[in-house]
């Protein structure tokens, strides 16, 4: 992205967590840590790399939980439609 280093693309209220490399503001520390690893993986420090690894673990755990919820939502929608159609078509 070309506009990551400028504040013009952002509308900041309160304290933003800033990327130490490009200054891009983030709403949470977690997102900033992930960004440092994704965008500045080759220049980041050892400590940042460690934190990035932790943040990635956290992210994939959260994603797993999220996907469980998605599966729940999909099953709900499936049953909703099965019952709607069987109700309507049998009537």
């Amino acid at each position: 992205m070309t506009d990551t280093t400028t504040d013009a693309a952002f509308d900041i209220d309160g304290d933003a967590e800033r990327c130490p490399y490009c200054g891009r503001p983030f709403a949470t520390d977690h997102l900033r840590t992930l960004h440092v690893g994704e965008a500045h993986g080759e220049t980041m420090t050892e400590e940042e790399a460690e934190r990035y690894a932790d943040a990635e673990d956290q992210e994939s755990d959260d994603l797993f939980v999220f996907h469980l919820k998605v599966l729940g939502a999909l099953s709900f929608i499936m049953f909703l439609f099965v019952y709607s159609y069987s109700f309507v078509w049998s009537g």
Partner: peptide, 24 residues
């Protein structure tokens, strides 16, 4: 049998919602 309009619409909306859930 007739399929009521609400179910026709709900199916369309449902397809979009499901496609979003699947892309996740």
């Amino acid at each position: 049998v007739d399929t009521p309009t609400w179910l026709f619409l709900m199916t369309g909306g449902g397809v979009i919602a499901v496609s979003f859930l699947l892309t996740s």
